[in-house]
Amino acid sequence: SRSSSKLGDGIGGIFTKKKLDDESIEELEDLLITSDLGVATAAKLTSNLAKTRFNKDIEPREVSEALAADIQAILDPVAKPLEIDRTKSPHIILMVGVNGSGKTTTIGKLATHYKAQDLKVVLAAGDTFRAAAVEQLQIWGDRTGCEVVAKETGADAAGLAYEAIERARAQQADVVLIDTAGRLHNKSDLMAELQKVIRVIRKLDENAPHDTVLVLDATTGQNALSQVGTFKELIEISGLIVTKLDGSARGGILVALAEKFGLPVHAIGVGETANDLRPFTAKDFSRSLMGLENASD
């Protein structure tokens, strides 16, 4: 895939007729770092490799394969689709994340996906802050044929979410996707507002939200660790969706996140249209990170 060929080329460059020595290990570590795996994760992966292969002749391809396998082992346990439990009627999903990460668009994509499974979906325009956020979700509602519950900009987000769930119940909908305004994790007042949304919807269903999905932009670097850590601490994130993997960013931060938090990764976003959501597959992701071809390519 285009997001990773550079890394694969780099490894080819390091290991042509070469022993795995300190220098090549350092270069390998550098290559992982340029994919946003972070210094610690990169060092851990390369030292694992060094344990078994140090000072042995090694082919570039072997190195890539070995690292891809190690990365896959880290990611396998977190690859988990976001499945709807029809008995919850409705299954309530709260979408959260920092500004511009792709929450609203991902809601449009998920709605498309669930509609295709013949589920009845209601969208809640819980971003009552950003200019035209409501209109944006409304367009997604039109595109997907889902009802959008919305109020004017400036309305109370928690109240809106509450109403949307009531509305979904009345219509016997299977899923409610609640959009929220983007917020940086270090803004305590905005995080408190999110906690309030959760408190309020729990008046209707004490197990709600059934999923709280953090939407993360694949372009994000090491700050994703802080993002996920804080969101998780304050509002119990149940899983991640990573967007914009169609770009040049490789999303290596996911590996560091999986190691640190072990949160499920539900899906990846690979474009701006309704059908640009893909299941997250540990094998495909790891191989593409290492510049190796996928079975599906």
């Binding site: 372009t219 994000t220 090491q222 700050n223 040049s248 960013a249």
Partner: peptide
């Protein structure tokens, strides 16, 4: 550009 951008910043800016 977003201050949270990771290593891809060079590719983005350069392109």
């Amino acid at each position: 550009a977003d201050a949270m951008t990771g290593q891809d910043a060079v590719t983005v800016a350069d392109t």
